[in-house]
Nucleic acid binder design. Structure first.
Lengths: 207, 207
DNA sequence: ACGGAAGCGATACAGTCGTATCGGAATAAG
DNA sequence: CTTATTCCGATACGACTGTATCGCTTCCGT
């Protein structure tokens, strides 16, 4: 058998190139040629990895989704000694992609969401990522509520609220309607309200 | 002087064609030729109305923004006898674009937001629309709070939360992560919490 | 009535797009 | 070493993009 190459790693590298371009030039600026150049491979190599452009974008969006959720999970696992409330705060911080170094990911995400609104095939991996994040939020909220007094009247509802709020804030920061700091303030205020609703004290010390 | 034509109305018509296309085929599917065809004018006519494509998109996004905010205002003005709380509920319903007949506008908005994240010139009209909506929300929240007991600790913060939440929910509905009905439930639950925080009863009867 | 400016739509143009194809280089199996 | 197969990267192709240009028609002002 002839030459063998690690397609998986190449696919990943190409996906990162897609992200870089989507960040810099927007969703329309992602062409196969530019992606190939950015990934430092030939156009043919990209074509061999992905039969079509949509296939490439599909892989890329999955890649980003996994990276974000992985980071969220890592952030939570990093401090297991803390309360569920604190963990939830960190998780939302991570999901909101407010920090400057994650601005690129935020733009990419937004670009994919917009495209997915008209492309059913692109929407599926996005739904999966959202489902994973929502499930994670539900778990944290339920844990936080259990450690407190009241029941969780609707942890799913709270999780959805949180997820939509972070997403919306991310978009508003990208547009420039609010600054990252202001968005952080809004998010933390909402979390404070959530603690109150759950009957827990919340994180007393803010890091 | 030779022939005179009503450019303003033609521009509006073209803007509507832009919206139709952005809704059907996504942000990438908006080409000058397709727009011209959809607007039932020649390509040259489009070019005469807008020097460049970006100019056209700029006008279109302004057009949509004004239409949405106008509808929100109209909805509020329609029932001035109601409480400020009820008015705010209606306003958020309108902004969230959850109803099926506004799904198109929602997609268009999302498309523009995504594009604006990398194009500063497109971001400006969007910021204006957001600012107008936020101001409107602040006013309604302040009024609602005044009719109640407590002060408005941070009406701006609440308004921003509401705006980001509606935006995020709209996106999630478009993706299919939640249904329109579920999103409505989330939104109304948040509003209920807001009434409680403001110390008002909120709308007792739901329309 | 007539001249000229404004509007018209078709066409031209250069560029980029995604995709298909192809001859040659590289390599594992015999 | 030979051979068959997998990968390579360049190039070809047709379609489409945004924009510029050009006769021609239409109509207002004098």
């Amino acid at each position: 058998m002839p030459k063998q190459v690690d397609y998986e790693s190449r696919r990943r590298r190409i996906a990162e190139a897609v992200c870089l371009l989507a960040d810099e030039q927007g969703p329309e600026g992602v062409s196969m040629r530019d992606v190939a150049t950015r990934a430092q491979v030939s156009l043919g190599a990209v074509q061999r990895c992905f039969r079509t452009k949509e296939e490439m974008l599909l892989f890329a969006v999955d890649h980003v989704g996994e990276r974000v959720t992985a980071r969220v999970r890592a952030r939570i696992a990093a401090g297991p000694a803390q309360s569920a409330a604190t963990a939830l705060g960190h998780a939302t911080d991570e999901v909101a992609l407010l920090r400057e170094e994650h601005r690129a990911e935020a733009r990419i995400w937004l670009a994919f969401v917009a495209q997915a609104a008209v492309s059913a095939s692109l929407a599926e991996p996005l739904r999966n990522s959202y489902a994973a994040l929502q499930e994670l939020f539900v778990r944290l909220i339920t844990e936080a509520a259990a450690s407190g007094a009241a029941d969780g009247p609707d942890a799913v509802c709270e999780a959805r609220t949180l997820l939509a709020l972070t997403d919306g804030l991310t978009g508003h920061v990208l547009i420039g309607h609010v600054t990252a700091r202001e968005a952080e303030g809004v998010l933390h205020a909402h979390l404070a309200g959530l603690w109150a609703r759950l009957g827990v004290t919340g994180p007393e010390a803010e890091g």
